[in-house]
Amino acid sequence: MIRKFVGAVTASLAALAGLWLMVAPFALGTQAETGDWTDTTRSEFFTGLGVAVVGAAGTIAFALAIHADLVARGLVEVKRREPEPSPEPVPAAAPQTSSAELATLLAPLVEALREDLNNNPRPNGKGSPVGVEENR
């Protein structure tokens, strides 16, 4: 991996040198502020532009290679975007039972309770709660 690091450093230095080449004719005063560019300026500017672009591309390429190397060795974890959890389907509402159906269902149970209470009255002598209900 050290070779990729050396390559990245070299490419980044070359990119900086390319930027310097682009401004050098103006910084050194070899290009007049007014007037057409001379051959010297054109040569240095466009060569510097090419060096800067190639240097930047090389830096990015080596940086990506270093990152891939680190990921392959398990030293860097790649964060993957987890897909949004799909909303759970809402269960269909249970069919509402009407009160008449409920009364029909519970009628045998109520009848059995009433018979049971009539056959075995409570020891404290109080009436059956079913009877209370009937008096209402």
Partner: peptide, 19 residues
Amino acid sequence: KAKLGVSALVLLFLGGLWL
């Protein structure tokens, strides 16, 4: 990606010679 970087280094070497 490393091959791309090496290609950039070769181009930079040639650019240096041109300069």
